[in-house]
Design a protein around this nucleic acid. Structure first.
Lengths: 339, 339
DNA sequence: GTGAAAGCGCTAACAA
DNA sequence: TTGTTAGCGCTTTCAC
């Protein structure tokens, strides 16, 4: 055997014909064995697998997909690999896909509509059987158009339209959980640092207002304009009178709030309590221990994949599913000391 | 048009033959246009693209790959989607691949050798032209075997062997940077909380020892056995005498150290300084502001992809590349107060 | 249970 | 510049 060159495949791959010849059977039989069909005798199976192993045979997916006219593959588009939120969704999708014998091809949208659009094109060119879009910033028109070509489920982003499915979380409920938690600790002066135009900011804001009103705290409603950053949280503290509790639109803003409170020696939760939103990785760090709202991210992935696969095998139609968030109490909330 | 069923593709896709017929040319010409070959007249190109657009034609990659016997695709295996380290490496790989007209298919190893192995099998079955393995826990024997079938570069994990390439970071240099920084701040009693058997722990430990000796601090060498967790950092503080500075094997352990110091009201960096390793996402949070060692993660991805693509087009051979880390000074290190 | 043969949709000679 | 044609490696009837 000569030394291989650096480029190109080292050895030309054996094909099914090679395996068939080596095993002394026909190519069709090899195909059956490879697809684990019950229509091949145990003896034939052994012979084929032995020959395949000996030759180092590997099925060519491109050829297989082409001939079978389906790929048993779903495309998963993640908005941003840097955001661990999507890793959890991906885990959920993979868990279901694995169980059902589907493959997942992953693409990173890299926070750009153009990159997402290209990724979708690649999915379509790859003949995926279905698509899950996690987060993402594609306009809904484009998604609807894609959904006409191949079944599509949006994960984490609520979308209307009956050509596609969606799985999302009820952010209004999350906001309510946060407010009720603080209320039960005796807080009345609860302000919301909102997320501006960020994803999910609007329902969280609305949920805060609704919950405050229902608890008879309509007069205490106070919303500080913010965004999904540490800086926004810190600014909210520095430029407004202190309440007894903050509910921020996400964990990063909560961290900014805590940081600014630390700077001015306001004890948390001794004097002021803080509730975030998202249950980011760092919220769970001992050093931070943020009380926050958890979205069932893994569950979103699972539900999205299940919905898609059910649609693929005709078991059920695509639809719109709303999951419930939960409250995670850690160490940034405590009894209201002002009472 | 009748209502589509939920499962299956909505409309049977048009093929090149359909486009050729619609444009009044041959299929071969359509193929040339689709591949942006200069060997098609502007007029033919227009006609073909117009017809393709009208029909909603999309090239079938499986068929294309099968016929062309190459895919212009590289596989990127990430050890763990939850670890943002890999997102940066992925960005680097994508940047280079995009520039060179290659596609990237992504797989998540999910911290499991079995899942990684399956992902590699999928890559091979998909006929990828090359593979980048970022991090990962596959035994080097398996990697070498794969590398005999298709060019492979390891990103972030140093590997020997001339059948594959690797790009990694010189952790001994990183450790030296940390120690020298503390030395310049006047620290002498610098202990290292090590990473046990974790990835990169050994060279960091060795680099610490070497740097201490070179600075004449051989007598001060003190290593506390740890691992890559918050808890290990906290334990190191609680169970050993305080030094004036800690250098931990990763940022998580550094966070544990800081947390334990906070618990006992030891000011950081007033009385004790802390240097981490990795420059994790949370290290940059204002609330934490950890001084740490940064690895050029994006650069690792770029270099790995460049090496792979160069090998693919025969420009150069696979080799082993060592990149340099840098020190990022934030707010957990300061002058030694014990002097 | 097994084999023969007709494609799947495309690329790449080669011919015109 | 364009058309003809022989595969790429596999799946899938349909006979046997």
């Amino acid at each position: 055997m000569t030394e291989p060159t650096a480029g190109g495949r080292r050895t030309s791959q054996p094909t099914m014909d090679d395996v068939a010849a080596a095993a002394g059977v026909s190519r069709a039989l090899v195909s059956l064995v490879m697809r684990e069909s019950p229509r091949a005798s145990a003896q034939a199976r052994r012979a084929v697998l032995e020959a395949a192993g000996r030759l180092g045979y590997r099925r060519n997916l491109a050829a297989s997909n082409l001939a079978a006219r389906r790929t048993l593959t779903i495309g998963l588009l993640l908005d941003d690999l840097h955001n661990p939120w999507f890793a959890d969704v991906s885990d959920g999708v993979h868990a279901v896909a694995d169980r059902c014998g589907y493959q997942v091809i992953l693409a990173d949208g890299r926070r750009s509509a153009a990159a997402e659009s290209r990724a979708i094109d690649t999915f379509l060119a790859s003949q995926v059987d279905g698509i899950v879009v996690a987060g993402g910033r594609l306009v809904s028109g484009r998604l609807a158009a894609v959904a006409r070509e191949v079944p599509l489920v949006s994960a984490g982003r609520p979308l209307r339209g009956n050509s596609l499915g969606s799985v999302s979380v009820d952010d209004a409920v999350g906001a309510r959980l946060a407010v009720e938690h603080l209320y039960e600790l005796g807080h009345r002066d609860i302000v919301h640092v909102d997320g501006g135009r960020g994803a999910g900011a609007a329902p969280r804001r609305a949920g805060y207002v609704a919950a405050m009103r229902e608890l008879g705290l309509g007069d205490h409603v106070r919303i500080i304009a913010g965004e999904f950053t540490e800086e926004a949280g810190a600014r909210a503290v520095r430029t407004h009178e202190l309440p007894t509790a903050y509910f921020t639109a996400n964990d990063l803003a909560a961290l900014g709030v805590i940081d600014a409170l630390d700077d001015t020696d306001v004890p948390v939760p001794g004097r002021v309590s803080v509730v975030g939103y998202d249950n980011n990785t760092f919220a769970a760090l001992r050093h931070i221990g943020l009380t926050t709202i958890d979205q069932p991210r893994n569950g979103i992935g699972r539900a999205a994949a299940e919905m898609l696969l059910a649609a693929l095998d005709g078991t059920s139609e695509l639809h719109h599913l709303l999951l419930q968030p939960t409250l995670v109490v850690r160490s940034t909330t405590g009894p209201c000391s002002a009472r």
